[in-house]
Amino acid sequence: MTVAPGASLKRIAANWVGVIPFLAFAAIFLLLPTVNIVIGAFRGPDGGFTLDTLAKLFEPRLATSFWLSIRVSLFSAALGALLGFLIAASVIHGGLPAWVRAPLVTFSGVAANFAGVPLAFAFIATLGRLGLVTVLLRDWFGVNIYAMGFNLISFWGLIFVYLYFQVSLMILIITPALEGLKREWREAAESLGASGLQYWWMVALPVLLPSLLGTFALLFANSFGAIATAQALTGSSQSLITVQLFAQIRGDVLQDPNLGYAIAFGMIVITAVANAIYIILRTRAEKWQK
């Protein structure tokens, strides 16, 4: 419904009235606070423009935290995407009975939202020093995983926990895409002599690539911004950048209020870069589909 050239003011108002509250809310409570942070990152203690605060991000303590967060997010997103894909593909195209599918998707919806503090508790109760699996392995099989170097409160331990919501989110998002693969494509590929692997690599994968890339970017951001799980699981022993920023906001431990802005700005830049890469790759991946 387009507005005619001579549309009255009333008409224009009627066109916008439903969207205005939403836009105003988003401007004040989403965009402005973020912009405020970005500007603050370029200000010195005296209020003037400076790059000094941002330069502090490259000091070892903060740089290590950033790098740790990036690695945790990359690994958990990559593993989450891979494992979620394998499970979803097994269920949908792997010859498993059809009734498995609906419960799996529902469960993934629950598990993807089962993050934060309770998730950390669940893993501590399972794989912590007194957790169910730890104790059973010790008592039944004489395997002491903690003596073997396993530790839930570690880099890989954290990733192992994150995979819970990462894998389920992947299953949730990729299932519709997998269901969209047409049987004819497979039959066509096979009648041309393609093996199963060739079909997946040369037909299914290019079709799914945009969805896969998008989900990966989402999983990355999902893990990069996470804090409650890490906080409940590790206290502050794994100093993710979110945990550092949290401490900084809570108690100004870094003795420099502007540093908080800089850290937050750094986080925005990283998620923005991740999404920019995704958009570029996606445009490329979709090019042939048009």
């Binding site: 969207v19 939403f22 836009l23 988003a26 409570f29 989403l30 965009l31 402005l32 606070p33 973020t34 405020n36 942070i37 603050g40 989402l218 951001a221 999902n222 990069f224 911004g225 804090i227 979110t242 920023l245 949290f246 906001i249 908080g260 802005y261 937050a264 986080m267 925005i268 998620t271 923005a272 999404n275």
Partner: peptide, 23 residues
Amino acid sequence: VEFITLLPLVIPVIVIAFGYLRM
């Protein structure tokens, strides 16, 4: 509108909360 609704997935929650505290 769609772009705005996706922003909260991209901007980390802690950053938005921090912005609130300052604003």
